[in-house]
Design a protein around this nucleic acid. Structure first.
Lengths: 118, 118
DNA sequence: TAAAAATACTCCATAGGTATTTTAT
DNA sequence: ATAAAATACCTATGGAGTATTTTTA
């Protein structure tokens, strides 16, 4: 199950149109159709009623939408959190005997500075 | 971004081992390795420290884990909700003039019963 | 040297695209 | 007749597997 498909579903639900959702997401229409079909297949229920000029959500689709909103929001949050934690922060305490301090630490410090000192 | 990858990450985090996670999920080891690598690539941060007999989470990995737990839980909930709503429930009120009632309704009822009456 | 992870490869399914056909008004 | 959705087809990437190699305690 691809999270991208949830975004696609959300866009279709908002636009009430596969074509418009495709434009909005910079996808091609057939791609959106395929994603929705796959989603319906994976869930085992139809999500859309297909009409002439628009589509609308089935009961299952209406049930799904708020969950999708929540999942997408939390997913974004997770991405954010992970990206923020990718750089070490805080205080680093180091203890070492003198010989170690003079021979090994300089190399390590050089690496840390090279990697993390912006 | 595949939700399955989040499950894989969770299993690795719990087992502290790619091999054990693979067994638990009935995957092959190389597959789990690949999924984690892809996840790290997609997020742009390393998630695991690789040691000899085990792996452990990097700060980014530790940051990610609770989000993953939440996402997986909510995802399950969404699936449940959608499956439950796939069958119409409640009371259906119908109004029709007599001619309609006698000519069209029987066919519709037949369909409804065929589709939804277990 | 032994166990775990990574890599190389193969195969098939999926995702995205273009072009066309079907459908419903 | 027209606009939207579905379908057919193609290519590229990703996912899962087997077998092998690399790594490190």
């Amino acid at each position: 199950m691809d999270i991208r498909s949830l975004e696609v579903f959300k866009a279709v639900a908002i636009e009430q149109s596969i074509t418009k959702a495709a434009e909005k997401l910079n996808y091609v229409q057939s791609n959106v159709t395929a994603r929705i079909q796959r989603l319906e297949q994976e869930l085992g229920v139809p999500l859309l009623y297909r009409y002439h000029k628009k589509v609308s959500l089935t009961p299952a689709g209406r049930e799904l939408l708020p969950y999708v909103n929540k999942l997408l929001y939390d997913f974004e949050e997770a991405i954010e959190a992970v990206k923020l934690s990718s750089t070490p922060r805080g205080t680093l305490h180091i203890g070492a005997i003198e010989s170690t301090a003079s021979t090994r630490l300089p190399i390590i410090f050089t690496n840390i500075i090279r990697n993390f000192h912006k």
